[in-house]
Amino acid sequence: MKITEEIKISDNGFVFNSKTGDSFNLNPLGLELIKQIANDKDFDIIRSEMLEKYDIDDLTFEKDFYEFCALLKHHQITLQDDPLNFV
């Protein structure tokens, strides 16, 4: 999962997509996660770090993480792969 080049993320959680002109806002954990994703970190590593830091169980975090990723994809913040390319 890659963040597209046109995305600018401010430290206050404001996200601007210069390709589409859309803007977004992130809550603090959303901001933290998007930065990790931008750094190309693996889900397993992100998860173990988050479980260490926050009071949360692994399944709830996994569910929330993938919902967040689906939204990033929906908003064209991450690169789109062909959804019918079943690899």
């Binding site: 401010s10 206050n12 959680g13 404001f14 601007f16 803007s23 806002n25």
Partner: peptide, 11 residues
């Protein structure tokens, strides 16, 4: 500038 828009939208 985008900053003003960002400020009213975020804060």
């Amino acid at each position: 500038d985008l900053e003003k828009f960002a400020a009213i939208s975020m804060n």
